[in-house]
Amino acid sequence: MSTAHTPDRPEDGRDDDPQDRAPEHGHAPGHDQDDRAGYKTDADAGSVDERDEADAPAVDPAAENAEGGEPAARVELPEEQQGEQEIPTFDLTLQIRRYNPEVSDEVHWDEFKLTMYGTDRVLDALHKVKWEIDGSLSFRRSCAHGVCGSDAMRINGQNRLACKVLLKDLDLSKPVTVEPIKGLPCEKDLIVDMEPFFQSYREIMPFLVAGGNEPTMERYQSQEDRARFDDTTKCILCAACTSSCPVFWTDGQYFGPAAIVNAHRFIFDSRDDAGDLRLEILNDKEGVWRCRTTFNCTEACPRGIQVTKAIAEVKNAILSRSM
């Protein structure tokens, strides 16, 4: 059910189509970029399919929501996958930036020739290298399904989650390059020290500060008030945005998009009382005013958060508070 196939998707008899079944990797591939629809996990796979069937005549929400559309598949896969037919395979060259301070301070690139399947992601290629070719390769991954935010890396020069990039969407005529994210100190291979990133996150106080009368049950909030900061609740702290920001690359002193997004989530929360304090923190020399609106962060966010817009809203909030 990749976008390329969507128009021809049979509305029933889906079971004949092995590509269309919730694949072994969990989520339906067509919904990789469907961030607006909220969180989806493996457990939701059933309901996702139901919803799809109900919505089938309407426009595909994935196509509607994905900013700029999903990348077109660059590898032609047969349109119809009948019954016993195998999933198509293709060859690719994977270049990985290697660094191991215990062996050498030099950085080098390793090249691997792999044969992968049409349903595989960059993370599967990394697994194949680690499990079958070179066990010394190090990278982080936890859930492997785009929720935990552990495997942000620079794939073909763009910050992406390795578990959300399908190999067939990449240009396989050239080698696929994988590097650690920039701006944070590299510890080994694709693993960076996230401490400066989390330090900024801690500084904006990413927790609810609510005073007044303590309610006996939950704190109520209208749907409109909840919708005000809905976009910024989606952050998974993968650091793809912060490490794509050229201002952060300079000296790492800038708070960074991720910290501002998470401050935004509480500043615009009607239940929170510490908005002024967070605005004051972000009115720093290294705060929101260092944003140059290059939109790298918005482009990098695997959750589709409008990061630059959120930063602009925080700028406006600081301005209107001071004027």
């Binding site: 400066p196 900024s200 500084e203 002193q253 720093d284 020399k285 260092r290 600081i318 301005l319």
Partner: peptide, 12 residues
């Protein structure tokens, strides 16, 4: 860590 905590409105 951030080396300074200059809090004024100059940058704004």
């Amino acid at each position: 860590n951030r080396s300074s905590s200059r809090r004024n409105n100059f940058e704004m």
